[in-house]
Design a protein around this nucleic acid. Sequence first.
RNA 1: CGGGGUAUAGCGCAGUCUGGUAGCGCGGAAGUUUUGGGAACUUCAGGUCGCAGGUUCGAAUCCUGCUGCCCCGACCA
Length: 440
Amino acid sequence: MRLSRYFLSILREVPKEAEIVSHRLMLRAGLIRQEAAGIYAWLPLGFRVLQKITQIVREEMDRVGAVELLMPTLQLADLWRQTGRYDAYGPEMLRISDRHKRELLYGPTNEEMITEIFSAYVRSYKDLPKLLYHIQWKFRDELRPRFGVMRGREFLMKDAYSFDVDEAAARISYNKMFVAYLRIFARMGLKAIPVRAETGPIGGNLSHEFIILAETGESAVYCDSGILDLPVPGPDMDYEHDLEPLIGDWTNFYAATGDVHDAARFERETQASKRIHTRGIEVGQVFYFGEKYSKPMRALITHADGSERPFQGGSYGVGVSRLAGAIIEASHDENGIIWPESVAPFKAGIADLKPGDPATGQVCEEIYASLQKAGVEVLYDDTGERPGAKFARLDLIGLPYQIIVGPKSLAEGTVELKVRATGARKNLPAAAAIGHLAGR
RNA sequence: CGGGGUAUAGCGCAGUCUGGUAGCGCGGAAGUUUUGGGAACUUCAGGUCGCAGGUUCGAAUCCUGCUGCCCCGACCA
């Protein structure tokens, strides 16, 4: 993409309303624009990031055998009345009525709807287990939205739902999702740790929150450093094997957020040298809830013995739009964002330091064409800005690599390749720079 | 929802106390000189001063009501 034809407007000054670093950088780098409290438009550069995050989530869901569908944002109030949640939910639910005075709501979640859909088609134990998911915008009318997309009112979520015949089977589904989550966050360059979460009135111990570590995170985190060194399963992970031992590895270490932290237990279970106290951001939760929805909604499964029983359900959320902010919290410096390559809006930026000069222009064009041909996503700064402005802008938007083409290095037959994360630069011939980015 | 702020050009702000017909910086446009870490100068464009009433010869400024937005707390993916 040529920057001169793109739609990108960066801000030099910091918008006043933004308190935390990710919010400031997202506004400054032209990723988002606030349209109302907690409601944002995703500008082209930000939208690309959102798409990258979405795609990683999608790939990992597909890998565990989850099946994607798409449910609407608007739901009928009557559906929620079946579980009593319409009245229980409170003012966080955005209630709407249509021209016929029919009561609707903008969905804050979809358990009722997926249960209704599932039970309309599936009756037999032979059809289980099933995992379904969708990636959709949701709305919660937060009293006080803040932190940009980290806590908006409208937000993009991946919600997965599991359907099983009994608790033992449900646990298998839960474990699959647990492992998929480890992979999702690792692929985004994040250190994520599962933390045992409150399960509310349902009971049981099958709920974990996934916290990514970021020093500017919103909640305190206490954990055993051992959990940070655990290897995340690779893409060849066999999800059909027994995952209990693996889950055990990840859940045996002490890990807690500030609100549930037990200092005495922490000291008892963790050696002093391995105690870590840092901060983090919740980006996902996995949850087994049994018959919470299937029972009141009479979503019954016929078992082998002829009996009919509600299915055992679980739900698994990932805050997709929140992740965009969370990744920045975890990866930035004083000059701007440092995108992990997997979610970067473009892999590289090319800067022509002397726009109008035939020599630098031609080399830039060649590099641009070659990278495009090789399928490398690249943003070519072909504008007439001065070098300093181009450097500052590229650093701010945080593309992993910068190819800097200026008369100085060109006189020696080289261009400069800069790695955003480390600041490392080296001069090398254009062909070598292309080869480096295009992979062998 | 309690407490505290704030609203003036795309962004950051001054002007409000003491009423007199709107200003600065960034950003945008044009030109000249520049050109390896957010250039300098000149010129230009851009505002129903959040909205609605009221007081006044005259309101960004004073009064009343409303709304948006932000911060702290409680709450949350």
